[in-house]
Structure formats: structure tokens, C-alpha cells
């Protein structure tokens, strides 16, 4: 594979359905980073991921994975990409040992010893049928299979949904180890923003098929803020300066995207730090402008 700066490059991706359009999606996943792909249900996260894997045809745009075109070099790329979906794709009568036998025929770099070590680390039994596994165990098994063929990119689609915080934390620790060499990358789609705040380096927001924000997580969190004021003071705020505002009986919370500018312009106002979840919430309601 050629030298590449970005593990994934998506430019102008467009896909039209009846009632929904993935519109001009453009973002990059830098090599060695974790990209959190955030959006509410139906925003277009899974459709974008399907386009990366060439599961769906696209109407426009280009996608490069590890520096190669995802259609022209489809099978070459897929040797180095691991997918983790929300459900285990194996029949429930299989056990981990049998899954290893199957996957040794799927991936050239399948490493059975590494897989066994991961099973031991995750405390997963080798000979127990997966129908007897809990949801957390199934997800850990999926991750073990994803990490056992020396993949350069891990693409996860809502993989941590439904898992308890202990298991989610365990999984995040595994990802930190996975990224240590600086050559591997993760694209993680989720609406559980707290996980992404812990691990993501970059974040891309998608809503109704459009990219709202894409950039380094810390930059986004530094530039955005929650302006808190009374309803009377809110009247004096230029609506162009805010993304949207939540009006309650106690006052107004308004999301700003340029905290520094707003601090200078509205010197008496309190602008608190914000979270990815709040940013998502306020951006999703941007069309309404004011909501409660």
C-alpha cells in the first residue's frame, strides 16, 4: 500500500434514497487516530460506513482507505480493515474455536495464537456456544476477531450500544492499546458521546445526511461553549452568534461555536464548557433555533 496520511479519506460522498440523502459527506480519519462519528439515529452513520465497505453504491464522491480507492482496490483494502457491527455475524451454535477456524479462511493474516490470547484476556471460553454468551461477551468476541488479523483500521458501527459501563470501559482500554504503535486507526460511530469523549482524537458530527462539524475533539470542545443567561439578556444576543438555544423557565442555554468571540462580545455572560452530547443536541435543533 502507498504511504498515506489519512487512514480514510471521504470526499463529496453522496447517496440518494427516497426521503433521505447522504449529501456531500467529506471528512478524513488521520492515521493513528480515533475518529468519533456522531449522530442521532437515522443521521447517516451506518450508510456512510456501508459506502466505505462498498456495500452500497454511491451516486457521487470518492473514498480512499489506506491511500487506495475503496472500489478499485476493494479486496486488498479489506485484508487490513476490521469491521465490528452491533451484532455478532456468526450463527449462535458456533463457539470461539470454530469461529477461529472459519476466519482463518477469510483473512490471510489471521493469527490464531493472538486470538487465543485475546480470549484469555477477555475471559471468554473457547468451547462454549455463543448463544450462551452475554451481550458484552459477544461484543468482546467480535473485537477479539477484529484484532486478530493485524488490521490497520477498525471500523465500528454502534458497537458499544447496549453494553454496561464496565464492559465499555474495558473495550476502550483495549482500543488504547491497539493504537499504541501510531500506525492503526479507528472509526467509531456511536451516539454514546461519553465513550467518544474518553477516547476520540477527532470527531465528525452528521445530521440528516449532512456533516455539521468535523475536526479535532479538543478544538471542538474548546471553541464551543454553553452561554447561560436570563430570558431578558437573551433578547440582546445576536442570533447569528448561536447555534440554537434551549429556553426553560429558569433561563436560556445557548450553544456558541466561537467561545472566544462571544466572551469578548458578551463580556458579562457566563459561557461554560460543554460536552459532545450537548453540542450534538444543540446542533440537531439548529433549524428550530429556539427549543425547550
Amino acid at each position: 500500500m502507498s504511504n498515506y496520511e489519512n487512514a480514510i479519506e471521504i470526499k463529496g460522498l453522496t447517496k440518494k434514497y427516497d426521503g433521505f440523502t447522504l449529501d456531500d459527506i467529506t471528512f478524513d480519519v488521520p492515521k493513528g487516530s480515533v475518529m468519533g462519528f456522531i449522530g442521532q439515529n437515522g443521521a447517516g452513520k451506518t450508510t456512510t460506513i456501508k459506502a466505505i465497505f462498498n456495500i452500497i453504491s454511491r451516486d457521487a464522491g470518492t473514498i480512499k482507505v489506506l491511500g487506495l480507492d475503496n472500489i478499485e482496490n476493494e479486496y486488498e483494502i479489506k485484508e487490513d480493515v476490521a469491521a465490528v457491527f452491533d451484532e455478532l455475524p456468526f450463527h449462535e451454535d458456533f463457539n470461539a474455536k470454530q469461529i477461529s477456524i472459519v476466519l482463518s479462511s477469510v483473512f490471510k493474516n489471521w493469527d490464531n495464537e493472538k486470538f487465543k490470547k485475546l480470549l484469555t484476556r477477555f475471559a471468554l471460553p473457547e468451547k462454549k456456544k455463543i448463544k450462551q454468551f452475554s451481550k458484552g461477551m459477544k461484543m468482546k468476541l467480535q473485537i477479539a476477531t477484529a484484532l486478530s488479523h493485524d488490521a490497520k483500521i477498525l471500523i465500528m458501527d454502534e458497537a458499544t450500544t447496549g453494553l454496561d459501563p464496565v464492559v465499555r470501559n474495558e473495550i476502550l482500554d483495549i482500543f488504547r492499546e491497539y493504537l499504541q504503535d501510531g500506525e492503526r486507526s479507528i472509526l467509531m460511530s456511536s451516539h454514546i458521546t461519553s465513550d467518544l469523549e474518553k477516547i476520540a482524537d477527532c470527531v465528525t458530527f452528521i445530521d440528516k445526511g449532512k456533516i455539521l462539524l468535523s475536526g479535532y475533539k479538543d478544538d471542538i470542545l474548546d471553541t464551543h461553549g454553553l452561554l447561560k443567561c436570563s430570558k431578558a439578556d437573551y433578547e440582546n444576543i445576536d442570533k447569528e452568534d448561536i447555534i440554537s438555544a434551549r429556553i426553560t423557565d429558569f433561563g436560556v442555554d445557548a450553544m456558541v461555536s466561537d467561545k472566544e468571540m462571544c466572551n469578548k462580545k458578551y463580556s458579562g455572560a457566563i459561557i461554560d464548557k460543554t460536552t459532545l452530547e450537548e453540542i450534538m443536541l444543540f446542533y440537531v435543533n439548529r433549524d428550530k433555533k429556539e427549543w425547550n
Binding site: 465497505f53 462498498n54 456495500i55 479489506k78 480493515v81 469491521a83 457491527f85 451484532e87 455478532l88 455475524p89 456468526f90 450463527h91 449462535e92 471500523i155
Partner: peptide
């Protein structure tokens, strides 16, 4: 199962 979809990846 989701095997057919997984095979695409």
C-alpha cells in the same frame, strides 16, 4: 445472522 453483510467487509 448478519453473515452476508459481514462478508462484504
Amino acid at each position: 445472522t448478519k453473515w452476508n453483510g459481514y462478508m462484504f467487509s
